[in-house]
């Protein structure tokens, strides 16, 4: 069985807003000096799901695919040190400012070259643009069924059972390979790479593609969504901060204030 996991390198979502500049030329995030990038958290959940399927099924080869202008090898090779076998990277400057529409097309062409795959796994969304549309768009383009927000995946021959997170509960869905599944954080914590994994990953060379290699010309790259502004939302400064002699006293005064306002 061949599994593909699509991943993205993103600016660490935990850093404060002040660590990120906005470049209005093409509208991109520019991390300030010393701000690190990480593997998108939901993509790590997807990697974990692939690895657990490999552990339960046995004969599974996991490939990882990412696109971008540049890659930090420490970050993008993490799936290999977690236990994946192959890494495919599509590298082009233009991909830095491409919208979901372009990204889906490039993923599609890459999969035509390196695939087919029985199962494609993606994180539910990327923590930078929060679009949650590339995986679903890719499924549409590949003419695959798509099951989103998985918290557990069981595979038995061609049959696959997925528990998905919906508001108010859980939905149990069955499908058949090939299918595309997006994985949510409820799947569980991704594993840490161990020393052996890191050593193995060190020996695996990623396979690079240019857009030209994929038969895509610059003329084919056209965003259909135009960003006209990115801004930091305005702060509301109406919050009344409770005073006190010390922190215990602040807690006391907070309780009294809430009683005074009839909130408790």
């Amino acid at each position: 069985m061949k599994i593909l996991v699509c991943v993205k390198e993103v600016i660490d979502p935990e850093v404060p807003v002040s660590s990120i500049d906005i470049d209005s030329n093409g509208w991109k995030f520019v991390p300030k000096q010393g701000v690190s990038t990480v593997l998108n958290g939901f993509d790590e959940n997807a990697i974990e799901a692939a690895l657990q399927l490999k552990e339960s099924i046995g004969d599974v080869e996991i490939s990882v695919l990412s696109l971008g202008k540049d890659f930090s090898m420490d970050v993008i090779k993490k799936p290999l040190s977690m236990g994946c076998q192959n890494l495919f990277l599509v590298k082009d400057d233009i991909l830095e400012t491409s919208d979901s529409f372009v990204i889906v097309n490039v993923l599609y062409e890459t999969i035509n070259k390196i695939g087919p795959f029985d199962l494609i796994l993606c994180g539910r969304q990327a923590s930078d643009w929060d679009n949650a549309q590339v995986p679903i768009g890719l499924a549409e383009k590949l003419n695959l069924d798509c099951v989103t927000l998985a918290k557990s995946i069981e595979c038995n021959n061609n049959n696959i059972t997925i528990e998905r997170v919906i508001s108010g509960g859980i939905e149990v869905v069955k499908s058949e390979l090939p299918v595309l599944i997006t994985v949510s954080n409820e799947y569980g914590e991704p594993r840490y790479p161990n020393l052996r994994g890191i050593m193995t990953a060190g020996k695996i060379q990623p396979q690079f593609f240019s857009l030209e290699d994929l038969g895509i010309s610059a003329n084919d790259i056209n965003n259909i969504n135009e960003i006209t502004d990115i801004y930091i939302p305005e702060k509301n400064s109406n919050c009344e901060f409770i005073k006190g002699e010390d922190e215990y006293d602040i807690g006391r005064n907070l309780a009294l204030k809430l009683r005074d306002k009839n909130l408790i």
């Binding site: 939302p233 702060k235 509301n236 109406n238 919050c239 009344e240 901060f241 409770i242 006190g244 010390d246 922190e247 215990y248 006293d249 602040i250 807690g251 006391r252 005064n253 907070l254 309780a255 009294l256 204030k257 809430l258």
Partner: peptide, 21 residues
């Protein structure tokens, strides 16, 4: 930005004052 009332500090010290009251 959304809170009406705020208490700034270490919850370890604020919560006991809140709970006792």
């Amino acid at each position: 930005n959304d809170a009406e009332f705020g208490a700034i500090g270490d919850w370890k010290n604020i919560l006991p004052g809140f709970l006792d009251t």
